[in-house]
Design a protein around this nucleic acid. Sequence first.
DNA 1: CTGAAAGCGCTTACAG
DNA 2: CTGAAAGCGCTTACAG
Lengths: 327, 327
Amino acid sequence: MKKITIKDVAKAAGVSISAVSRVFNGYEDISEETQKKVFAAAEKLEYTPNSAARHLSTKKKKIIALVLNEINVTRGVAMPLEILGGVIDSVDQTDYEFMFIPTDRKKQEKKSLLQLAREYDLSGIIIQGLRTSDPYYGELSALPLPIVGIDLALDDLNIGSVAVDNYGASIEVTERLIHAGYKKILFVNGSKEAVVSQTREAGYRKGLGQYKPHVLYADYQEQKAFDLIYEYPDLTQFDAIYAASDLMAIGIIKALIQRQMMNEIAVVGFDDITLASYITPTLSTVRQNISEITKNAVSDVIEQIEEGRVRKRLVPYEIIVRESAQF
Amino acid sequence: MKKITIKDVAKAAGVSISAVSRVFNGYEDISEETQKKVFAAAEKLEYTPNSAARHLSTKKKKIIALVLNEINVTRGVAMPLEILGGVIDSVDQTDYEFMFIPTDRKKQEKKSLLQLAREYDLSGIIIQGLRTSDPYYGELSALPLPIVGIDLALDDLNIGSVAVDNYGASIEVTERLIHAGYKKILFVNGSKEAVVSQTREAGYRKGLGQYKPHVLYADYQEQKAFDLIYEYPDLTQFDAIYAASDLMAIGIIKALIQRQMMNEIAVVGFDDITLASYITPTLSTVRQNISEITKNAVSDVIEQIEEGRVRKRLVPYEIIVRESAQF
DNA sequence: CTGAAAGCGCTTACAG
DNA sequence: CTGAAAGCGCTTACAG
């Protein structure tokens, strides 16, 4: 493939490469005639400035990276895709460049976040899906770089965060269940390492008040949640099950149906994934507004980059009542 | 954020920058001692070669880009995510770099594929989600660059393609329906512009043989498919409906249930999205093996880059019989 | 085995 | 308003 560089355009337009560069960067002090010649030549040659060269020579870079951890774990859960799409759309409306950096445990061990930031001259990072046990998690506080975590509750005041109000939502779910007469509530949590898990569990415990907590862990997996409930010795001690994710709630519903106990136990999930409204019975759950989250994440990193202000932001949730739990 | 460059490492290690570069690029003719000093210095400084500088100065670039069109159209359909994850995993196992380029109509109009390729010095492109009406679609044939389309049936022998055998699958679905006694089959297609739509429809027509085709279009939308079937004047003229996507099939099932006709009409979908096995009745469909598709797409672009061989590849499908159609 | 130097394709003070 | 030149951080023949 033939390379077309700024020199080719300059020659074709009969001007210097400085002139071409200035035209492409929207400088004001360029005669209209030069602009026209440059654009004409560029168009004819299908010229685009080379990204690497531009990045290398430009002073103030404007690149926001979205670092997504473990995106391909669960088939059928489109949340990382929604986040990706949302962040892309938001960044597109600014003059920042977008960069997508998928990661996982192995990659984290090979290259630190700081190295990643240096490698690509990042201006700021939005990161999602981290567990407390991830290498990047420990690195966060020391990072000399604007950073916003999604679903990441760190006390560190230098790290931005945007998350649905997991704590408040869990309190409300629990309290409403209690008010509706469900006082023996089992909480099926994901993993102890996920920050969201901890927060949701804390809300559940808070919401319970005087009532006794019961917590099991199913690692955010439908099958594990199914097994847990299917094999649980004495389910009659519960009248409601609140799961930290819809997928686990669905596993629980299947197990309850098998055990013919769906009528005796209410089930509430979290996320409002697509499946929630398609299964039978339809699933009551807490909806996260992903596009609200991504919009804020982007505007917050930019604010952090440009003004240094760090925000801890909670995005409102919505409780969706469907067939699996009336409360 | 302090920049650490090759100079800092060279100074810290007490060698020239050439030596540092050679060590990082795995050259053989470097004394072990130099290697150790360089690695020690690099580690201490958390140095990583700057990507832009490296790209600019290196001769043979090795970058494979995944261009995904319109990723955020349908909530709950995780296929683009599966493709993304699959391509990332495959590229990770090679010495090529991965780059993600999301696009849409507007972006396509602003920057051509050729310009994109030049901007990032791409070695090869994997592209998915194109419709025949997209600007990039028309550009494909003239692109002087290794390219593999997913779900893209172009006659052009210079463009690689990997796709499930849409034609064969549609023939088999149709023929099996006929053999099972369903001879009045309605085909609900997506859009006329999508290449996959055309291929699936062709298979349907072929499989019908002597029987009469009936085709409607619902733009791959559940709601449109629902409306179409819900309002269709005389459904008794059909005994089966074959939809070009699961999502439309689900809309159709909902409409048939509303009209109390689910028992009289068999429904078959395409894709095997997660929802297919969760709805009631569970959906018979054609499964695409996404990971097989992505694996082949990556190995095919690389083969095209390195050896110039272009493949047109069909990946096997699997017909999944569930409750909505026994055939 | 090692270093000095040219060059990758841009941007941006600087001088005119 | 315009061009020549330095510099961004690397890689890679080249000479030793």
